[in-house]
Design a binder for these strands. Structure first.
Lengths: 249, 249
DNA sequence: CATGGGCAATCACACAGGTTAAGTGCTGCC
DNA sequence: GGCAGCACTTAACCTGTGTGATTGCCCATG
């Protein structure tokens, strides 16, 4: 049991880093989280971690890999509403919303840890500050949703694509999983299309454009943002919405 | 002082109704909210309630009228990320995010009540369930963000417009501010354009289409959804994401 | 070694929605 | 009572992005 908790604590590092980028986290709070952890699970690309319409009894934290929240439409088209990395809860909102109003899928091979909702209730009763930090975590999701929304409404497909890549790079860098403007991004162009809200054909056009513009290189696995400053300017990217500021919350 | 609290309780009815659509609220919890209320303020259409980049020390609850969250882009274009009605907090997230990453504006004449963040901290320490209900309130915002995102990515302009009107009708009806498929909607076409992410010219085209299709009548003030079922079907509207289910949270 | 399926890359064509501009009608104000 | 300003309407034209189809590559599988 003790060794399991220690092991969990190791896997929780990305999440601790993510939260500690925004506020300090006490040892007792970290322990409370580690003790609330339940199962470790593994998923392959294309698997669903959580199904639309289900009523999860635990929330799922990504510990490695890429996942997406998505909705399917009656006509078969698909739209992502978020991409989640190590350290992100994919369905912390199900703790209070109860019924899932969308699905969560694995974009790459990925590992997760689950947290039973009853233990989250206990945390919400005993650790007000930690509760606020979990709340904050869902508010960051909301902030990203809003930024995506603005992009969808008012930016071109190429700008949105560029914006997404900037965002993912900064989020990975914040948890020490990316540096030197590079990161492993084993995602299919079709997935990128569903994230950005365009067709696969157009994703391809856009990527050509970004490659020829000298903005990036991407050979399947490794993505290299060759000129991040220019890319940010092109995408009108302003990182304020990521709230990467450590302060009392 | 006592009479002020009673008066506040009156204005808080829409908010209580909104939360009580999702879970029971105890008298003690209602009193805690009423006592945390601070100032009453009034705004005219076009006014800003909260400025992008500011650091509010209180959160703002709408008690009447329509407000919007929006971001301005460098090129002058604007995109809404939410529309808020009576009973909605427009910036509860600023309680934990601290710095606003967007603005909040008044779409109509509207009245609000403010809640100092320090009093919200006290609530989060003393009332775990009420805290979860406030958290829930921000999660509902997130759910609406996601629904808008899917629309922006995968629905036509006319469908998105129809979808928005369905949403607002159901939200108003849930707090007894609309019935018989009608509601007062004193919004400009330009605002609607910023909500749906299209041009004002195209809003006009879309409204013609919806009027000629027999879906709605709208003479400036009063909006009448003449055939709500058909409108919902056209917009692929599924109200699950509003989570209008009363259950323990 | 052959095969089939997934993914990236292109092309030709169609159309939803943007842009620009001009005109109408209403309201409020000096 | 005339004028300025704003919201709405309509038109002509342009373009970004979708659709459908085809090709070639790579890799996994039998």
């Amino acid at each position: 049991m003790t060794s399991q908790i220690i092991e969990a604590a190791e896997l929780l590092q990305p999440m601790f880093r993510k939260l500690q980028q925004r506020d300090e986290l006490g040892d007792e709070e970290k322990r409370a989280i580690a003790e609330a952890a339940d199962q470790r699970l593994v998923f392959a690309p294309g698997d669903d971690l959580v199904a639309d319409g289900s009523r999860p009894e635990h929330s799922t934290l990504v510990t490695s890999g890429f996942t997406c929240r998505y909705k399917m439409l009656p006509n078969g088209s698909r739209q992502f509403t978020a991409i989640h990395l190590a350290g992100d809860f994919v369905d912390l909102h199900s703790f209070l919303l109860k019924e899932m109003d969308h699905s969560v899928g694995a974009l790459s091979h990925c590992t997760v840890i689950t947290f039973p909702h009853e233990r989250l209730v206990t945390i919400s009763q005993r650790f007000p500050h930690l509760t606020r930090m979990l709340w904050l975590s869902t508010l960051l999701d909301g902030a990203m949703h809003r930024e995506w929304l603005v992009g969808m409404g008012r930016l071109s497909a190429a700008q949105r694509t560029a914006h997404l890549l900037c965002e993912i790079y900064l989020r990975l860098a914040a948890i020490n999983l990316a540096r030197d403007n590079q990161f492993n991004f084993p995602i299919t162009q079709a997935s990128l299309a569903d994230a950005v809200g365009i067709s696969t054909v157009h994703v391809n056009r856009v990527l050509q454009e970004l490659r020829h513009g000298g903005y990036l290189a991407w050979d399947g696995g490794m993505l290299d943002l060759l000129d991040l400053d220019r890319l940010k300017a092109f995408a009108q990217f302003d990182e304020t919405y990521l709230h990467l500021v450590q302060e009392p919350r």
